[in-house]
């Protein structure tokens, strides 16, 4: 009895150790951003100081610089807007495409799916040259719309691929049952397949949005004016002047943009993991 209890305690302690180690590991970047955001430059640049704590009283100078002397607010809005539109374009195209590839094209579907995925492997550093020509032809240079048009080129292949897997995991009998029960193929897709792949669709939403916020090459090459810039390019471009790094403001910018995405991920974490088709078939 006592031994058993002892074992339980040891196991508990071990579990907590693992949790604490990983928690600390994952939380550290956020802590680092947070503390740097509010540290005075003199504190930051003094190598003799302990870097993990405030050695001088905190300051709001970096935030002031970020919001008043750069167009950070505008960049965030730009990014959110571009992200939203890209997510919509991605969903409108990827969801039906994935369903069609998973269900309607037979053996062709799998091959085509691989083909679609392969395009994802071509790096933007190669593609931005031909794409800049496309952007110029469309007359979208130096506008936010240039990246909105270009981003789906990499969000789509991955999203289609991911959703194909989701649709494939839904038993075909359900489509058949829905059609016998009085729906058309399209009806079955809209009323059954989409509600049943909510987790997949959410994953695509977050994935596409994250890619848009972190994209660098296209935004750098296609957009030059500060007012049209996205966060990913605006922040490093305007807060690294020559060899001067505005660490405090840089970290503040990172913190402000990463926290909402982190919260978003956490909110839907269960949705991602949830075995959504449980009970459909024995």
């Amino acid at each position: 009895m006592a031994r058993r209890r002892q074992r339980k305690v040891v196991l508990n302690v071990a579990m907590w150790c693992v949790r604490i180690v990983f928690g600390a590991l994952l939380a550290f970047p956020f802590y680092w951003m947070l503390i740097t955001t509010f540290k005075r430059n003199t504190d930051l640049n003094n190598l003799k100081n302990n870097p993990f704590i405030f050695n001088e009283p905190p300051t709001l100078d970096h935030l002031r610089l970020l919001f008043h002397e750069t167009m950070f607010g505008r960049w965030v809005l730009n990014t959110a807007f571009a992200g939203l539109i890209v997510v919509i374009i991605t969903l409108v195209l990827a969801v039906p495409a994935a369903y069609a590839l998973a269900r309607l094209t037979g053996n062709w579907g799998a091959q085509l799916g691989i083909g679609v995925f392969l395009t994802y492997l071509v790096p933007p550093t190669l593609l931005f040259i031909p794409l800049s020509k496309v952007v110029a032809m469309l007359g979208l240079q130096d506008t936010l719309w240039s990246v909105i048009v270009v981003y789906p080129t990499f969000t789509l292949p991955f999203s289609i691929w991911l959703l194909m897997g989701f649709f494939k995991s839904i038993p075909k009998d359900l489509d058949d049952a829905a059609m016998v029960d009085g729906l058309t193929r399209w009806g079955a897709f809209v009323k059954l397949m989409i509600p049943m792949s909510v987790s997949g669709i959410l994953t695509v939403v977050i994935f596409a949005f994250t890619l848009v916020t972190q994209e660098f090459v296209y935004a750098l090459t296609f957009i030059s004016s500060a007012a049209n810039q996205t966060v990913g390019v605006g922040v490093p471009t305007y807060l690294v002047r020559g060899d001067v790094y505005y660490w405090g403001s840089l970290m503040a910018a990172c913190l402000i943009t990463s926290v909402p995405i982190g919260i978003l991920y956490n909110t839907f974490l269960d949705r991602f993991i949830e075995g959504f088709t449980g009970g459909a078939v024995k």
Binding site: P171, D173, L174, D176, A177, A178, M179, V180, D181, G182, L183, T184, L192, P195, M196, F276, T277, G278, G279, A280, V281, K282
Partner: peptide
């Protein structure tokens, strides 16, 4: 005719209940 126009009902081996 499509399945829905045939006025039939079907029970599948897997039952195909809508899980959600």
């Amino acid at each position: 005719l499509t399945p829905r126009e045939r006025g039939i009902a079907m029970v599948f081996q897997s039952y195909a209940l809508y899980p959600h």
